[in-house]
Structure formats: C-alpha cells, structure tokens
Write a protein that binds this DNA or RNA. Structure first.
Lengths: 111, 111
DNA sequence: TTCATATACAATCATTTGGTTGTACGTTAG
DNA sequence: CTAACGTACAACCAAATGATTGTATATGAA
C-alpha cells in the first residue's frame, strides 16, 4: 500500500521510529559527517557493542544508513536520500495547514 | 539539557515517536486541515474511543497538536510550529552531510 | 431534573523495545 | 597456524507501547 514518495506506511513508521531515539540520532549525525565501522561507533557510547549494533540495524532497516562490508568490518554511512523523504513528508503537513489558512482567508475576503 | 531549537532530547524523542504511527499521522493530517473534537476523530477509526484519546494525548505531549476545551468537547488542532521544528532538525542532518561532501570536494581539488 | 454525550482515567493484557550476556563465525595480523 | 578483532545472532529481561473494558465526571439538551 503506497502512501507517499513511494513509501509504505510501515516504511514511514520505521523512519520516524528510528529517529525517536537520541543514541540513533547521534549515530546518524556521526555517519552523515563521516563513515564509520560498527565497532568504531560502539566505542563512542556507554553501552554494549550488541546494543549499538541493534541501533545501527534499526537505522539500516529504516534506510537512514547504509551498511557496506569491507573486510571484517561493516562500514556505516548516513543516507541523505531517506532524510529527504522524511522532510518531504513533513512538508505535506505544512502544506495541508497552509491550504486551510488560505481557505479561511478566502472566506474572510468575501466580505 | 537543551539540544537544538530550544528542544531537549526527550522532546525530540516525543515528536518523532508521535510521528511513527499511521493513526497518529492521520489524526495530525486531519487536524492540520480542520479542527476536530476527540469524539469526531474517534468516529473515523476502527478502534475504541479510549485508544484514539491516547493517540491524541501522545500528539499533544509532543506539541504536534493543541487541545482546547469548548463546552464538553476538546477541540484538537494541528500545530504547524512543531512540524517546523522537526523539519529544522532534519535540515541539520542534511547540512552535516553537505559539509562532508564539501570537504571531500576540497580534498579532490587539491590536485 | 433527567438523560445522553464527551471526556478522563484506571486496570489489564499482549507485543515491542532497548538493553544485557553468551556463543559462533569470518577476517586480519603476527 | 594461531590469536585477536569485528560482526552476527540467540536467549533473556525490564520497561514502554497500543489496545481493551470499565467506571467516573462534567456538560448540554429535553
């Protein structure tokens, strides 16, 4: 069931859910600035490697980062394309609001 | 602990978490287009009134809608201000990415 | 006043989430 | 080859989420 921007409702769920955690947002920030391996990322946080690994998986399943094998490492990179899709979704809500205001203005202008 | 745009990390959590559910996004869409009471909203979904009431509460706590008493009803309106804040947050990630690309370009230009 | 409506809120329950530890496997360095 | 490193994944646990039903309270209409 396609909803918008070629995204299903579940995919949108995953994107916003992935963004709803401070650790994941920080991982996203880091990997947008520079690629990093999972273990490199894990070193930055006060939690187990497996926990960070899971956070990366959530971001990956949302399409917010990509995971590319390189030797024994997995290189994580932020994916600006999905960020853009999220922005487009938010734009729609603003647009809906503007339409309402325009209608109100039109109504008032009838006087 | 202020993070950005006058929002704490918890507040950002709440905004994205609230957006990570199709029913809540639909409530947001409706209330951005036109104000509605909780019972009016509840009539639109195949779930209990209490469930919809909870979804509205999640949106309210995130600041994505406002709840204003009017008689025995509560009038719900979408709040474009918080949508804008979420957009600003996403803008930052794109900006971080652009900086990385600029640095790469600069590096390549050194030849 | 009386009754229906709109909301609030508590208790409950199944599922998901965010974390842990432990084990296994592939890869690189010595 | 062996040892260390990086990752994958399963099992487990506490807490949060998304839904339910039931009860209480306030408002509006008759």
């Amino acid at each position: 069931m396609i909803v918008y921007e070629g995204l299903t409702s579940d995919e949108v769920d995953r994107i916003f859910r992935a963004l709803a955690d401070a650790t994941r947002r920080d991982i996203l920030r880091r990997t947008m600035a520079a690629e990093a391996s999972v273990s490199r990322l894990a070193a930055a946080y006060d939690m187990s490697f497996a926990a960070v690994q899971k956070h990366v998986a959530v971001l990956d399943e949302a399409g917010l980062v990509t995971k590319q094998p390189r030797g024994r490492e997995r290189i994580i990179r932020g994916n600006p394309e999905t960020i853009r899709k999220a922005q487009d979704l938010l734009d729609r809500y603003e647009e809906i609001w503007r339409c309402r205001i325009d209608q109100l203005d039109a109504l008032l202008a009838e006087d």
